[in-house]
């Protein structure tokens, strides 16, 4: 079984968000970067699937050299090798084109992405890769097993879950539930990761179709109206008469 896990390098979930260069560019100063959480879970499950059968796990990132510490972490978790497409990630279609270009002749059985990256929240790359490769895509994968060459998949849908089956190859975008917890690299894994191959490939050209012009931050809330705990009736009155929310 050959699995490709696409990971993105995103600000830690506790990071404060701010921008530079006329609010166009995310301010990376003093920010810890991590593997986007859903992708970390997908990678964890991919490793379990490989260990239960056999095969190889490759991780792929579209990014500059500053993404390599995150990639080394993925190798330390247990991935066999890594590919970095050497370019700044632009919009989702640009990233998807890079991934599809790498994947097109490699016959991966499963390509995992995360449900969305937690920076741009596009929820786009996995499905775009699948369309570029003309293979099925399954979104919001909350559980997966493999029997032979068939994925037995649980995906979240509105208000519930759907069990589906799909023959290899396919793209699955992982979300919470696909693995209970992200795998924590052991010391031995961290040592081995230094020697695992991290191959750099050059990007294919593609003019991005969308561009972020500017970012804004949410407006500060006005002060909270405090109500005494023994006066809940007042809260209900305010919600009904002032906020008109109930």
């Amino acid at each position: 079984m050959k699995i490709l896990v696409c990971i993105s390098n995103v600000p830690d979930t506790t990071a404060k968000i701010s921008f530079v260069e006329d609010n166009k560019v995310y301010n990376k100063n003093n920010v810890q970067f991590i593997i986007s959480p859903y992708e970390e879970l997908a990678l964890t499950r991919a490793l379990e699937l490989k260990e239960a059968a056999s095969g190889t796990i490759t991780v792929l990132t579209v990014g500059l050299q500053d993404a390599e510490p995150t990639m080394r972490k993925a190798l330390a978790m247990g991935a066999d090798d890594a590919i970095r497409v050497n370019t700044e990630a632009k919009d989702a279609m640009f990233v998807a084109k890079q991934i599809a270009e790498v994947a097109k002749n490699k016959n991966y059985d499963i390509i995992f992405t995360g449900k969305e990256s937690i920076d741009y929240n596009g929820s786009q790359v996995g499905e775009m890769v699948a369309e570029l490769l003309d293979i099925p895509s399954i979104t919001s994968v909350s559980g997966i097993d493999v029997e032979g060459t068939t994925g037995k998949i649980q995906r979240e849908i509105d208000g519930g879950y759907e069990q589906i089956e799909c023959e290899f190859p396919f793209v699955g975008s992982g979300q919470k539930g696909i693995a209970p917890e992200p795998r924590i690299p052991a010391m031995r894994g961290i040592m081995m990761a230094r020697k695992k191959p991290l191959n750099i490939v050059e990007p294919v050209e593609f003019t991005d179709l969308t561009q972020v012009i500017t970012h804004t931050l949410p407006e500060a809330k006005s002060a909270c109206t405090m109500i005494e705990p023994d006066n809940v009736g007042e809260l209900v009155r305010l919600l009904h008469e002032e906020a008109k929310a109930i």
Partner: peptide
Amino acid sequence: KKAYSGKAFADVQVNS
């Protein structure tokens, strides 16, 4: 659109 999981917003231009 929303970005950074609701911690920011982005104005996006579409050129296609």
